[in-house]
């Protein structure tokens, strides 16, 4: 039992030790890893630009979250970054290299993890890794070493020689992730890598990504799960209609957006008279009232907060929560991109 336990402990620790060895933090460099200037893409027959004069810089070593509703321009941006699509106007430089001028060099530095499970179902996990590794120019002992390392990161060593079509969704996601790491890219681009998997697999992927980030890898991450971005990313941009609407760290975004919003949840029903009192406060610009909660917008939120708490205390209404400004990234996201359904 003791031996088995030790072996298990070794396997669990192996990926992270491997990662630390393989992804040494690069020297501090002030130059951003990705520089995007005036990037515009108009598709043939498109009614409006998919990207509209977009400008963005992503620093080396960042865990960068790119958030946006469907059709916002995320996939177009990733495709241009990876050299898959030509921009209509503007420039993209990755590691100081113009993507359009030397796509092959940029591609060698990027690992793409597509949203789709980009795997060959009738090949084994090992064969998938080896094939994509060879296509990235690896061979011989180096290839074998990288295949073993990636299997270890995904904890797929025991399943390495099983065909992928026998894998669960979570196992496939893990393999999909590590194929993007096979050539030790400097920039890892992940397009919604946790769609449709169980919480354990999602947690595993999050942990793996955190470790990669700590080891110095620059990560560009797109997701629709706001809490994922909030927990993982140290730098976030919200994109819509091909433009960057907001850019900053999570605290910065929460502080800046919805700063004048007060949201209150009560433990009892809100009496009409109290609601009327709140509505007529001079500091309140607009208000939305429900049975046990309300949300008000104010141009002077600090004064409004004092007035609201006094009214609630006077009415002896017990609070569940009270917040000033956005409570989470999702509120910021909806405030910026709206609640209208997208295609």
């Amino acid at each position: 039992m003791a031996v088995a336990y030790e072996r298990r402990a070794f396997l669990l620790s192996f990926p992270y030790r491997t990662l630390r060895i393989l992804f040494l933090a690069p020297p501090v460099n002030a130059a951003p890893l990705i520089e995007i200037t005036d990037l515009t893409k108009v598709y043939r027959g498109g009614q409006r630009p998919a990207l509209d004069g977009l400008a963005l810089a992503i620093r080396r070593g960042a865990f960068f979250g790119l958030l946006g509703p469907n059709g916002a321009g995320k996939s177009t941006l990733i495709s241009i970054l990876c050299g898959l699509l030509a921009p209509t106007r503007g420039a993209v430089r990755v590691l100081g290299t113009d993507v359009q001028a030397d796509a092959a060099r940029v591609k060698s530095a990027i690992g793409l993890v597509p949203q789709d499970l980009a795997l060959y179902p009738t090949l084994t996990a090992r064969e998938n890794l080896a094939f994509f590794g060879r296509m990235q120019g690896l061979s011989g002992a180096r290839l074998q070493e990288r295949v073993a390392a990636c299997l270890a990161i995904a904890r797929l060593e025991d399943l390495a020689d099983r065909r992928v079509d026998t894998f669960s969704g979570g196992l496939k996601r893990r393999l999909n992730l590590v194929i993007g790491l096979i050539h030790e890219p400097q920039l890892l681009i992940l397009d919604e890598p946790t769609v449709g998997i169980d919480p354990q697999s999602r947690n595993f992927i999050h942990e793996a990504l955190r470790t990669l980030h700590q080891a110095g890898m620059t990560i560009l991450y797109t997701t629709h799960y706001m809490e994922e971005a909030e927990n993982l990313c140290d730098d976030i941009a919200i994109i819509d209609h091909g433009k960057i609407l907001a850019h900053g760290t999570v605290p910065e975004l929460l502080r800046v957006h919805r700063a004048g919003t007060i949201v209150v949840q009560l433990d009892t029903d809100l009496p009409d008279a109290v609601a009327q009192q709140l509505r007529t406060l001079p500091q309140v610009r607009t208000g939305r009232f429900a049975t046990r909660s309300f949300e008000i917008e104010s141009d002077s939120p600090d004064a409004a907060l004092v007035a609201v708490t006094e009214i609630l205390r006077g009415a002896c209404l017990p609070l569940v929560s009270l917040s000033l400004g956005a409570m989470n990234l999702e509120q910021v996201f909806l405030a910026l991109t709206g609640t209208r359904l997208r295609d």
Partner: peptide, 13 residues
């Protein structure tokens, strides 16, 4: 459709 082609085209091939 599986995305393999996209992945391959994101590589220097």
């Amino acid at each position: 459709a599986q995305g393999c082609l996209l992945r391959l085209q994101s590589m220097p091939v």
